[in-house]
């Protein structure tokens, strides 16, 4: 099962390497990873999606807590949090398919961010399943490049 862990860390060099190394050393696989600063410039947030069973996720969380630069860890429940990924997709439009592609992207509320004679680039945000569905629909037209960020997530309501 996929678990979302949001890890607040000190914004110092080498911290991401320590977090990532911990996953490999303890034998856990990272499905996706996203890192960014927060409103406090001394703190970064690392959002990690990891596929594991319940007891392993507990062990991962405990081991993460042991890293000195880790300030706080939140396990986000899928139903009580908002998850988003961003994707940039470059598609071939040589075979006069641009209109159809635009129609699909309208349904998904994707943005056109670049157009050339033979290509179009779309930008879409959404949760994993929306992005995967979008990808499936566009595949037949010929995806040239598909660039997807790791998931970021935020808990719903007042809790932080």
């Amino acid at each position: 099962m996929n678990h979302i862990i949001s890890v607040m860390v000190e914004n110092k060099s080498g911290v991401l390497a320590k977090v990532a190394a911990l996953f490999s050393r303890r034998g856990f696989n990272i499905e996706s990873l996203a890192v960014g600063t927060t409103d406090d410039d001394k703190v970064s947030r690392i959002t990690i999606v990891v596929n594991s069973d319940e007891s392993s996720i507990e062990q991962i969380t405990k081991q993460l807590h042991k890293l000195i630069n880790v300030i706080k860890i939140q396990k986000l429940q899928p139903d009580y949090s908002v998850q988003r990924e961003l994707v940039l997709i470059k598609i071939n439009t040589e075979n006069k398919s641009r209109a159809e592609i635009l129609e699909i992207s309208n349904i998904f509320r994707a943005n056109v961010v670049d157009v050339t004679k033979g290509t179009i680039m779309l930008e879409l945000t959404g949760n994993s399943s929306k992005i995967s569905a979008f990808e499936e629909l566009l595949k037949p037209y010929g995806i040239i490049e598909f660039v997807r960020t790791g998931m970021i997530a935020c808990s719903r309501g007042k809790k932080s």
Binding site: S13, G14, K66
Partner: peptide, 14 residues
């Protein structure tokens, strides 16, 4: 050496 000793130290500093 900080990279090498990360898994075998409680913490390290450069």
């Amino acid at each position: 050496i900080t990279g090498i000793t990360s898994p075998i130290t409680k913490h390290n500093y450069l």
